[in-house]
Design a protein around this nucleic acid. Structure first.
Lengths: 111, 111
DNA sequence: AACTATATATAGTCCAGAAAGGTATTTTGC
DNA sequence: GCAAAATACCTTTCTGGACTATATATAGTT
């Protein structure tokens, strides 16, 4: 029997969820991951080997910007903030996602 | 402004949808694609450069088997049929998918 | 002193999906 | 009769995203 790939995430949804968490206000990377895990009641695990590269790509795309600061616990951390382009992108991605899900559910439910 | 990637599919859902269409009975590749496009009211487009490689991977994984035959239109075509393993896989994938979607929606909807 | 949690980063790997090219036959339109 | 569209398949190549593994560092706890 072939091995089951077991992705933690549905590929293509990480940007959207990161953008979503940042829509509340700036966060550092670790907190983004925690928040997604938290909000999903632990069902979604964000590997840091997925998170940080994604954040860097998002910086390059101009969806977020970043500055170093301190957490409540007095640790240095990099805080990411949505740009206007990022906010637009969040809109676009969630609209597209919802449409996609509805289409998939049509396929899966059609008898 | 960075280019928008515009995927036809949500990555990771193609196997599941193919398996779903075959759950009704054997189909050839072209018909699988047509059926998915049809059921999704045209929202999902299956590129044949995605479809045929996917079908071959599914053959290797033992989820489907295939034999050559004739369509209603008297064209030669390769008909794919779900194996028991494929049926199990369909179950597993759709359960996991539904769970994943619920988790993502929690993240996207949480205020 | 050791361990856990917090915090970031990168190098390397793997795989699915898309793009782009090709073959061949049947039906439809002019 | 001929061109075009639709039907049907296949393969090679590219790319990007997610995962693994590894590394660094500090704060707080035991």
């Amino acid at each position: 029997m072939a091995e089951l790939r077991n992705p933690d995430l549905l590929p293509g949804t990480l940007y959207m969820m990161i953008l979503r968490t940042l829509n509340q206000g700036p966060l550092h990377g670790y907190a983004i991951a925690k928040r997604i895990e938290d909000w999903s009641k632990g069902d979604l695990q964000i590997e840091d080997g997925s998170l940080y590269p994604a954040l860097n790509r998002m910086l390059q795309k101009g969806w977020v910007n970043a500055e170093w600061g301190m957490t409540e616990n007095k640790r240095r951390a990099r805080f990411y903030r949505l740009t206007p382009a990022g906010r637009k992108r969040l809109e676009a991605e969630s609209t597209a996602f919802n449409k996609m899900i509805r289409a998939i559910q049509l396929v899966m439910r059609t008898s």
